[in-house]
């Protein structure tokens, strides 16, 4: 026997469902609007990541691609070249970030004094930033070429830089002080740091100058009235106020230094020996010179993890900055 529902009740129920549906009806238009962007992002951002994951567990053989599990990672962990390049990268990053931030902050403080020529100084200061890494590297290289470089006459003068002079691009690294860790660095690595600092200084200076200009004069003046000298004002007032920007600059420099390959490529090509072979250059070298795409993918993933941590740090600091505002 068929069970029937009383008509009025049924009508009420369907009417209420329709209302609910109408209320819950999703407006698909925004999704369609962002679909092209999502597709492009999937193609150029997400797919390469998955492809890198796939490559990292494969190795190329004459017969084709072969699944090797974690062998590529194992080979990287066991390679002395990777261990050494981690050391070079750490030294490079510390030197590059500390020098750039310190010099950038000092120059920003000077420019913040609003002299008549501040605009001209800022324009001049910005020149290195518009040069490509490769150009800057090639120019710095030409300056110190042994025997033929512009400064080689001074650098290779016996007596000024040791008994035989200094050949920046070919002098080997001194004997390491701490086991295998490549410290002190080779002259070429120090020179690479200096060239990279020169290149990045404008960006950091402008960033810090912008932050300094947000610091209220009243606060500075109050501190002076309270008897703080210039150094105390910088230490206890200025730096805490621009700290979030400094941290963002720090992460930005670290990310740039970690992934940049152009300057190394043009200036030292990882040499002399492997004394300037940083991780990014090693990655390029394994991938595009040795054509070992599997191992390069594994190294790329390892570098990506470090990058992700840095990005997460930057985002957290940026959020803190926004909250404090």
């Amino acid at each position: 026997m068929e069970q029937t529902v009383p008509a009025p009740l049924r009508d009420d129920s369907s009417a209420s469902t329709r209302t609910k549906r109408k209320r819950r009806r999703i407006d698909w238009l925004p999704f369609w609007l962002i679909l092209p962007t999502v597709l492009v992002l999937l193609a150029i951002q997400v797919y390469p990541v998955f492809y890198t994951l796939v490559l990292s567990v494969q190795e190329r053989k004459p017969s084709g691609w072969v699944y090797v599990g974690l062998r590529n990672f194992e080979r990287l962990f066991n390679a002395s070249a990777v261990r050494e390049s981690v050391g070079h990268t750490l030294i490079f990053l510390v030197g590059y970030v500390v020098l750039t931030l310190t010099l950038g902050f000092i120059i920003a403080l000077l420019l913040n004094r609003k002299s008549r020529l501040s605009g001209a100084y800022i324009t001049l200061l910005f020149i290195p930033w518009i040069l490509a890494d490769i150009i800057a590297g090639a120019v710095f290289r030409l300056l110190v070429l042994p025997d033929y470089g512009l400064f080689s006459g001074i650098l290779q003068q016996p007596g000024i830089f040791g008994p035989n002079g200094l050949s920046v691009l070919t002098a080997p690294a001194p004997k390491p002080w701490f086991g295998e860790f490549p410290f002190p660095p080779s002259p070429a690595l120090i020179y690479l740091i200096l060239a990279s600092v020169w290149r990045a200084l404008p960006f950091v200076t402008i960033l810090l100058l912008a932050a300094l200009q947000t610091v209220s004069n009243e606060v500075i003046e109050s501190s002076r009235i309270d008897g703080a000298n210039a150094l105390q004002t910088i230490r206890h007032i200025t730096i805490p106020l621009i700290l979030p920007t400094m941290v963002v600059a720090l992460f930005s420099l670290t990310l740039g230094g970690m992934n940049g390959v152009g300057m190394v490529f043009a200036l030292t090509a990882g040499g002399p020996g492997n004394s300037t072979e940083v991780l990014s250059y090693l990655l390029y070298s394994i991938g595009w010179s040795a054509l070992d795409f599997g191992r390069a993918a594994a190294l790329a993933l390892m570098i990506a993890v470090v990058n992700l941590l840095l990005i997460a740090g930057t985002m957290r600091v940026t959020r803190l900055q926004q909250r404090s505002e």
Binding site: L145, P146, D147, L169, T170
Partner: peptide, 20 residues
Amino acid sequence: VPDIAFAGGFQEEEAFKDSS
């Protein structure tokens, strides 16, 4: 052997070009 031999970038040729 001149130091330029170790500079890379084919710059070692310079020492032969000028017959040093």
